[in-house]
Design a protein around this nucleic acid. Structure first.
Lengths: 152, 152
DNA sequence: CACTCTCCGTGGATGCGATCGACCTGAGCC
DNA sequence: GGCTCAGGTCGATCGCATCCACGGAGAGTG
């Protein structure tokens, strides 16, 4: 991870569909050199995936909710996680410090579907309680932040 | 937005670097047809961006926090938003129902930087109080969910 | 110092993909 | 029927991705 790798990561965070030739121009190397560097960034796990960012409403996901989860005393955290993993509505899952062990971000089409999701969450073994907040609007999400030069 | 558009969106959510030729093979159209459809999806705002998803630690962002914001009675929500927008650490910003008007997801390098961010947030005009939860680990994030056939 | 090994690059060649323009076809409408 | 338009296909051209052979800088070693 030198300065050029950081530039490549930053460029691809801004636009994942840039061609290798274009990346090469931006960082001042040849296209094959860039190709190899990006390949290494991918296989070393620095770059995890390339994703199109989609307006959720236009694919029928109008409701966004953030849900805190309190585990009960019998909970096996791995089992709880596995149960969450099987619920496709849960887009993100953070393991938190504090009373609420997890914070989930879920997207569903309707409030009725959200209700069903919450019921399922509360029925999940190991879950003591849930606390749901509804997002009225998403001002922005996953905004890439400029990278400073300090990494492994 | 017909079924083919939905397939294209889903394919690109899974891998934003697929070539038009490959997309064309997957959906059973010619490459120019796919090119035109994707272009329309982009300009109509369904596809907002293409982003590389990066392991945060490897770009020096080891600390993730979720911060609830309570506005005070004098707050102008637009001004508060604008102030948040100028803080690059804030990756996502949701406007919420409930006592806490906003929920922010922030990423910083160190706990000390998080402390500074929280101080800045509390000093922001219109902000009455903040409540911060620290993510010990991110189990997953922005997982694309399979699309059902029902959209505009 | 000179040798060598390795890493990381460059340049050239080649086949595939992006992209443009010409043309085709079916639906809706007068 | 005949027009028009949206949305395809096909073919051609050019740029890009990708493979390969080669070269130079720096570290370790006699």
């Amino acid at each position: 991870m030198d300065a050029i790798d950081l530039s490549l990561v930053e460029l691809l965070r801004g636009n994942a569909r840039l061609s290798y030739a274009e990346l090469a121009r931006q960082v001042g190397l040849s296209a094959p050199a860039v190709h190899e560097r990006v390949g290494k960034l991918e296989s070393s796990g620095v770059i995890r995936a390339y994703r199109a960012e989609v307006e959720p409403e236009s694919v029928g996901l109008a409701v966004t909710a953030l849900i805190g989860i309190v585990e009960d005393s019998t909970a096996d955290t791995d089992d709880v996680l596995e149960a969450f993993r099987r619920m496709p509505e849960i887009e993100s899952c953070y393991f938190m410090a504090g009373v609420e062990s997890f914070l989930l971000k879920a997207r569903v089409g309707t409030i009725a579907e959200l209700e069903q999701l919450i019921v399922r969450l509360n029925r999940t073994p190991g879950v003591a309680s849930t606390r749901t907040g509804i997002a009225l609007s998403t001002k922005w999400e996953n905004r890439p932040q400029p990278i400073e030069s300090s990494a492994s």
